[in-house]
């Protein structure tokens, strides 16, 4: 009898999770749209080494990122088109990969994604004692207007 209850609970959980996945927006869907970078912070960093460590990194500052359905990402800098590349999401929706045209691959960990806010951490070498945290807010049609 108890076993039947366990089976029912497990089946209900499984079905419930299926419904949640169907009904809610996946990180991939949430990402689509225009995002304005509002902050770029260095967390847990040894400030003396900042320049040495980050001089070779291609960091995006003060840009607008536009993700579209066709997995294309457009960078805007002060309203002019800066660069176009491909993007995709991996894992359970926690890794954002950017594929540059020169075959360079940039990885970000998605820390938070909601309808209005996106927080990503730049994935750098583990030896670097610091995380580059980029915060974005969504640009809606009304904001644009």
């Amino acid at each position: 009898m108890k076993l039947t209850y366990i089976h029912i609970v497990l089946a209900a959980l499984f079905i419930g999770c299926g419904i949640v996945i169907q009904k809610s927006d996946s990180p991939e869907k949430l990402l689509i749209g225009k995002w304005e970078e509002v902050a770029c912070e260095y967390e847990r960093i040894d400030k003396e080494n900042t320049n040495d460590i980050y001089q070779n990194l291609n960091l995006h500052k003060g840009e607008v990122w536009q993700f579209d359905n066709a997995h294309k990402l457009i960078f805007f800098n002060k309203n002019y088109l800066k660069e176009t590349l491909n993007w995709n999401i991996k894992g359970r929706g926690h890794i954002l990969e950017l594929h540059y045209k020169d075959k360079r691959l940039e990885g970000y960990q998605i820390q938070e994604i909601t309808k209005d806010k996106l927080v990503i951490h730049f994935n750098i070498d583990l030896q670097v004692r610091g995380i580059v945290k980029l915060t974005f807010k969504r640009i809606t049609e009304e904001t644009n207007a």
Binding site: L10, C17, V20, I21, G93
Partner: peptide, 12 residues
């Protein structure tokens, strides 16, 4: 909840 559901289904 989306990510939690995905991980739960993976474990299941």
């Amino acid at each position: 909840w989306y990510q939690a559901s995905v991980v739960f289904i993976w474990v299941a």
